[in-house]
Design a protein around this nucleic acid. Structure first.
Lengths: 336, 336
DNA sequence: GTTAGCACTCGCCAGTGCTGAGTGCTAACA
DNA sequence: TGTTAGCACTCAGCACTGGCGAGTGCTAAC
C-alpha cells in the first residue's frame, strides 16, 4: 500500500518524533537516516504522506509529525513483536518473583513495576472472580459480642468483616448460621450468591436477620466487586513529564478520567483478548484521551481468572518497547 | 501583640486572598470590609504588617498577600473552632454511615468523602495494628494441594494468602502446624510475632519448613504493614485547580512527594495528637511542600487503634472550614 | 525521477510603549 | 498625633513590531 521509500520515511518520522517530541524536517531525516536521497526528495514524499493522512503539519513552516493514522500504520507494521532488552527482562523477572503474594499488594506492585519501567502511567485491573464458588463461611469470635465473618472462595479469595452482634443474636446463633450456609450453599457460584436473599436463611434468627443479611451482602459485594476497587493506578506523575501535556487543561482532563475508576475499568476491560492491543489517539472512545494511546494486555491466572494491565501514554509512545514489556509481564504473571 | 486594627487588616487580607488568590490592595479592603478608615490609612497598616513579617508583596505595585507567618497568626487566632455548615455535616453523616464496612474500602471512601467536600487532596492513613494480638490461624483447603491460610487478629483484621503445598508437605501437616500455632501463639502480640522465627515451629515439617515460614512472614508483614499500603490518597486532581500550581514544575514536585507513600506516611503520622494540627508552608519539612499546608487530624477507633486523616492544599487554604470538617469526621469515625 | 536553488511562511523571541493597579510620600487637616 | 487626599512613581501584563531561523513548496535543470 505504501512503497518502500514512503514507509522508510514514515517510520523515520515516527521513530524520531517518539524520541524528540519535535516536528521532524526533511533535512533531519536525510541526515539521521541513510536513505540515500536528498532532503528535496524526502520533502516530496512527505507531502504525499501528508495527503494520504499519515502525517500532519502543526503549522506551515514546521516539520511533520505522525497523525493517529501514521502511528496506526507503524504499529500494525511491526511484523514480529520486538523483544525486550535483556536488562529489562531481568528486572521484570526479579521483581515479579518477589511480589507474588497477597492480592492487593500484588496488583499494586505490578502497577508500580510497569510504570517505573516504561515511564508512563500504568493501570492494573485485578482478576475477576469469574466462575468462583463459595468454599467456606466462617465466623471467628473476637470477644463476647464481636466476631470476624469470613467468606472464602475456591479461588482463594477471602472477604472479611467485623460484625458486632446485635441484641437478640448471640455467638451461637451466628455459628449455626455459618453451618447452615456451609451445608446448603458451599459450591454455589458467586454470581448466584449475589442475587440471593439471605433473609430466608437468617429468618429463623429473628432479631439478627437484617444485620446478618447486610453483612453477607457486603461481603459478597466486596468479593464480586466489578467496580472501581479492582483498579490500581501507578505513575500518574509520569504524565507530567510528557511535553505534550504541559498544558494544564489537557492534563486535568486526563487526570479526571483516571480518577473515575469505573470509567477506566470499562476502558481497559473492553480491549480484545489475545496479545497486547493498542488504541491510538482518537481511537479511544473517551474525548479526553484523544492525545493518548492505551496499550492493554490481558493476563490469565492459573485459576482461569483474567485481569488486565494497561499502559497509558501520549500517542507519541514507545510502542515497541511497551508491547514487548506487557507481553512478557502477562506471560510471567500467568505462570504464577 | 498586634493592635486591633492591624489584626482586622491582616484577617481581611487573609480571608480575601483565600477567596480570590489575587494580591489584595488597600482600596479593596476599604471597600469590602467596613473598617471606617481610608485606603491611605490601611496602606500604612499594611506597610507595618509587612515589616513585621505577616504580609508580603509579590512585586512593588501589587497588593499584599499573607506570608506563612500571616497564615499562622490567622490560624492560631481562630479562637473557637468554627462549626461546620449544616449541609456539610449532613453530607458527612449520611455518607459515613453507609461506609463503615470493609477496612480498605472504608479508607478509600473516607478519602474520597473528604477530598470531594474540601476540593483539596486528602490523605487517609489506616489504623495501626498497635497492640493487636493473634486470635487464630486457620487453613482452608481449596483442592488437593492448595489452601488459603488466614491469620485473624483480635482487632478483627485478617490477612490471607493462598499457599500451594510444596512437595513433602501435605494438607494434614498444614493443619497440624495451624494447631500448633494456635495452641502456642494465640494471644501473642503482633509486634512479637514479627520478630519470631517460625522455622523452629515448622522445623519438624522437614521439606515444607521454608515455604511455611515465608508464608507466615508475608502474612504477618501484611498485617503490620507500617509502610505505604496503609496510605490512601484521593482527589490529587484537585491540586490542578489551584492557580498557584499552574506551574508544572511545582506540580511535579508535589506529585512526586505524594507518590512516595512512605514519605507521606511519615509526614502525616508525625502530627501531634489532639485535634486538627496545621502545618503551614515552610513549616513542612519537605521542600516540595513549601507552598502547601497540611491539616492533619487523628481518629481513634473503638479498639484503640489510631489512624490519620490529612488534607493537603495550598497555603491559601480554607483553614476554618477544613479544620471543622476534619474534627467532625474524626469524631464520627471514632464512634463507629 | 532526482536535486539544487529560491522565495515564502510562520512560530518564536526580544524589544517597545501603553495601561492600570497599587504603592509610598508629603502636606494638610482634625 | 493620627488620619486623609493628592500625586508621583513602579511594575506586571498586554499588544504590537521586526528580525531570525527552520522548514516548506515550487521550478527548472540535470
Amino acid at each position: 500500500m505504501l512503497d518502500a521509500r514512503k514507509r522508510q520515511v514514515l517510520f523515520a518520522i515516527v521513530q524520531d518524533y517518539i524520541q524528540t517530541a519535535e516536528p521532524i524536517g526533511s533535512r533531519t531525516i536525510a541526515k539521521r537516516h541513510a536513505l540515500g536521497v536528498s532532503p528535496a526528495t524526502i520533502r516530496n514524499e512527505m507531502a504525499d504522506l501528508e495527503e494520504l493522512g499519515f502525517l500532519a503539519q502543526p503549522h506551515t513552516s514546521a516539520g511533520r509529525i505522525p497523525s493517529d493514522r501514521g502511528y496506526r500504520f507503524y504499529v500494525d507494521a511491526m511484523e514480529q513483536l520486538p523483544t525486550l532488552t535483556a536488562v529489562d527482562a531481568e528486572t521484570v523477572k526479579r521483581q515479579l518473583s518477589g511480589m507474588l503474594r497477597g492480592q492487593q499488594t500484588m496488583l499494586d506492585a505490578l502497577a508500580r513495576l510497569v510504570s517505573s519501567l516504561t515511564n508512563y502511567t500504568s493501570i492494573v485491573v485485578g482478576p475477576q472472580p469469574h466462575q468462583a464458588r463459595l468454599q467456606l463461611m466462617q465466623a471467628v469470635p473476637l470477644d463476647e459480642n464481636r466476631a470476624v465473618i469470613m467468606l472464602v472462595l475456591d479461588t482463594g479469595m477471602v472477604a472479611n468483616e467485623v460484625l458486632a452482634l446485635p441484641r437478640g443474636l448471640d455467638m451461637y446463633d451466628l455459628l449455626v448460621f455459618c453451618n447452615y450456609v456451609n451445608l446448603n450453599l458451599a459450591g454455589t457460584l458467586l454470581s448466584k450468591l449475589k442475587d440471593m436473599n439471605f433473609e430466608a436463611y437468617a429468618g429463623q434468627l429473628r432479631a439478627g436477620a437484617q444485620v446478618l443479611e447486610q453483612t453477607m451482602d457486603s461481603l459478597i459485594a466486596s468479593l464480586s466487586r466489578s467496580d472501581g476497587d479492582r483498579v490500581v493506578l501507578s505513575g500518574a506523575t509520569n504524565i507530567l513529564n510528557q511535553p505534550e501535556f504541559k498544558d494544564i487543561a489537557k492534563l486535568r482532563a486526563i487526570m479526571r478520567v483516571l480518577d473515575e475508576h469505573e470509567l477506566v475499568l470499562r476502558l481497559v476491560t473492553s480491549a480484545p483478548g489475545a496479545g497486547a492491543s493498542v488504541s491510538i489517539g482518537a481511537e479511544n472512545a473517551v474525548e479526553a484521551l484523544r492525545d493518548c494511546s492505551l496499550i492493554t494486555a490481558t493476563y490469565e491466572l492459573s485459576g482461569g481468572q483474567t485481569g488486565h494491565i494497561c499502559v497509558l501514554g501520549p500517542t507519541r509512545m514507545e510502542y515497541a518497547r511497551v508491547i514487548a514489556l506487557l507481553n512478557y509481564v502477562t506471560k510471567l504473571v500467568g505462570r504464577a
